[in-house]
Design a protein around this nucleic acid. Sequence first.
DNA 1: CCTACCGATCGGTAGG
DNA 2: CCTACCGATCGGTAGG
Lengths: 215, 215
Amino acid sequence: MTGKTRVGEVGRTARKSRSGRTEATRKPGDERWAELLQVAAKTFADKGYSATTLQGIADELGMLKGSLYYYIRTKEDLLFELVRSVLVLAEERLAERVPDDGPAVDRLEVLVREHVIFLIEHLTETTVYLHEADQLTADRRAKLPVHGFIARLEKLVVDGKEDGTIRPDADPHLGALTILGAANWVYRWYRPGGNSSPEEIAEEIARMCRKSLEA
Amino acid sequence: MTGKTRVGEVGRTARKSRSGRTEATRKPGDERWAELLQVAAKTFADKGYSATTLQGIADELGMLKGSLYYYIRTKEDLLFELVRSVLVLAEERLAERVPDDGPAVDRLEVLVREHVIFLIEHLTETTVYLHEADQLTADRRAKLPVHGFIARLEKLVVDGKEDGTIRPDADPHLGALTILGAANWVYRWYRPGGNSSPEEIAEEIARMCRKSLEA
DNA sequence: CCTACCGATCGGTAGG
DNA sequence: CCTACCGATCGGTAGG
């Protein structure tokens, strides 16, 4: 309303002829695009994807609904982009913080802890992912950069049975799914300002997960 | 389509003057009402409450959309009734299957096991509850017969710390929430026809929850 | 339960 | 990004 940059038709043109272009599309690096994603994430997390209207998002941004189509082609673009980016970010984070060697049960504990910390630090986006991703059409869902988190957990259980740090009777698949539930459930109840810090919460959940499978 | 009972205006009248009436409202005990709930549950579980249209439900029932209003006043009635009834049923089930005495950690294990079995046996309805209940308006949500499941879990952890069957360093609140997540997460992945039976799944999850807190 | 209907809103578009 | 617009559909209602 006050000092917004006007670019006129540039964006639209850029989107239409996206093949051999020097000037970038408006999206990446643009401040307004980031705002749009932020508002969309908050609204999707609060009311759900389907109950969210583009009119509501536009209102919050102080623009007209039709103007949103300068940034997106469909409503689903917003959901997809949010889910995609949080997956990429999580992947990076876990890659740099979870070691590749050492006793499997230790690695599992670290993995769970870092997973929970990430979840809490990106609560809005992870909520959108965990609660709304199934609203994506099948073809869009197939294009998500899923990083096989369950497979990773399963492998840790298998490794742990081999290195003797995890109970021999543990079920890798069921175990992985249950650990995942214990960790992911955080998005259903965590709200800033509670008694425990994110680190304390992550620590406690990780400890419980460890104990649940430890030899 | 073939042998459906026609009652004409009776139902509508019955609904409008619900005060001092001998003849019951159409709803309770009516076969068609049960069908409606069933279709609604399946659709809400599959596509989400908000993405579900009354037109779609009516189509599946072979009636016109407007006719649904013979049974309901608003779309939310369907969601509320589904969530309400599954809560009541769960309460009953757990009351009759989980003992009130014995070592706390044992009771906790049984509680989790029965909870998971119930979840799986009523997967559609529990999915609606766990994934869609927050689509209810605040006042409707306040009218739900919530049976304090978390509080019950918390108390078991506290009891267990007293009777020595649960680790002294366990956090009752965090512990209860984490157990709840491990158990509830089942609705996100369980599908009939898998490798493990509901009982095996429930048994394994319950065991893990036990171990996660056991002294 | 059907007929017939409504206001509101939805996602989305053409053109600038 | 705005103007101006559209077809489709939404939940819901009056009356029988």
